[in-house]
Computed example of a mutant assay.
Amino acid sequence: LLTDLPDEAYLRYLIKGIELSGLRVVLDCANGAACALAPEIFRRAGAHVDAINTHSDGYTINVEAGSEYVRRDRSALLKALQAHGADLGIAFDGDADRVICVTPDGMLIDGDHMLGILAVDLKARQRLAGDMVVATEMSNSGLADYLAAHEIGLSRTKVGDRYVMERLREHDLTLGGEQAGHIIVRDDEHGSGDGIYVGLLLAALAAQRKRNGEGSLSQLAGAIPRYPQVIASAHLKARVDLSAVAGLAEAVEAVHALFEHKGRVNLRFSGTEPNLLRVMLEGTAANTLQQVIESALRLCHLVAAASGTDQPRIDMVDCATGAPIQL
């Protein structure tokens, strides 16, 4: 009986001030940490809850389940949403520190969308410290433009939630996170990334808007522009000095010109995987995803040639969906 006490305290802690009455949600618990508590937490907050992927045996965590899987393929969660007539689908990852949402019309609400939605809501309630959001260099520039239109700044860090947290603490800020759904809300009572808490915040907004007859979360997320963005990973025989690769500087400048000098180009070798080149390209609203894909491939092949790699294996991901791109 005593072992239940910490869970109960955590439950009460999370639902303080959260009102989900009138909202029906489908929770994808990723067969992981969210299984034991998330459904009960959302029920206690007033939601009608249907849960999937709740087989927490330790062997099926994130297997065709959870936030990363939903980013690549939202069809199973969307099918459950529509079958239950639910208002919102919420997917956690295995340890429940990340969260992704899906709306009944099939829209994926990722970390960038959540940062935009939560920032505007927090600012309206005078709870966004410094009128500033922290995100990594991976966040889409559409988020920056959306925040700027609401007079909110965006401070970028290196990739990794630890860097986001460091920036938040350094400047005593409230909100930060990553595109993949690791969102940190720092206030008087919360100080770490918690997917269940962030899911509750998004659900509370959805419930409030439903009760008031206002637009859905998909309408809020749809107001945040998303420019075509990819990450290419090229597996090479050796690392090379990128500044010494013949023609690379000119090729990068040509990409910038294609993007009207408003897009972003980032080339770097992985800090953890040997000889792995990562290329992040982001175009503008005037560019197509295919243009961005082709530009990323050109840069990868230039560096590959300089490294002596004739036919490099290149993997590419669409940052908007998390889905792999077939090359």
Rank of each mutant, 00 (worst) to 15 (best):
L201Q: 08
T309K: 03
Y13W: 15
L77G: 02
K262M: 14
V279H: 02
G153D: 11
H171F: 13
G111D: 04
Q208C: 11
I100P: 00
H261C: 10
V252G: 05
R226L: 13
T288S: 12
S21Q: 14
R313P: 03
H261P: 07
L78R: 04
F259V: 07
K16M: 12
C29H: 00
G177E: 05
L217V: 06
Q229Y: 04
T103N: 06
C300V: 06
S141G: 15
G181D: 03
L122E: 05
M165P: 08
D121V: 11
H182N: 09
D50C: 14
R209C: 11
G17M: 07
D50G: 10
A254I: 08
H113R: 11
A34N: 04
L267K: 00
L14Q: 10
R298I: 12
K210D: 06
P39E: 10
A119L: 08
G191I: 11
P274N: 14
E8Y: 15
I152P: 00
V70E: 01
N266A: 14
I90S: 02
N212S: 15
G94C: 05
I196E: 01
A249N: 13
A223L: 07
G89L: 07
I100R: 01
S307T: 11
D187N: 14
L81W: 05
P228L: 05
V265W: 05
T309R: 01
G308P: 02
H301C: 09
R209M: 12
L108V: 13
L267I: 06
C29N: 01
G247D: 04
V25S: 03
L202V: 09
V230Y: 01
N62T: 08
E19T: 12
E166K: 13
F92Y: 12
N53W: 02
H235I: 05
A36W: 09
G160K: 09
G215A: 15
C300Q: 04
D161W: 05
H84C: 13
F92V: 04
M316N: 01
I100M: 05
S295L: 06
D241S: 13
Y146K: 04
D93C: 00
H301W: 11
G283P: 01
V70N: 04
Y197H: 09
G283C: 07
C29I: 00
A51Q: 09
G17P: 09
S295I: 02
M316A: 00
D110W: 08
L143Y: 08
G215I: 15
P324D: 02
A119V: 09
G191N: 14
L205V: 10
A36H: 13
A180V: 12
G322I: 04
Q291E: 14
P6D: 09
G89T: 05
A65T: 03
G85K: 11
D161C: 04
D95P: 01
D87P: 07
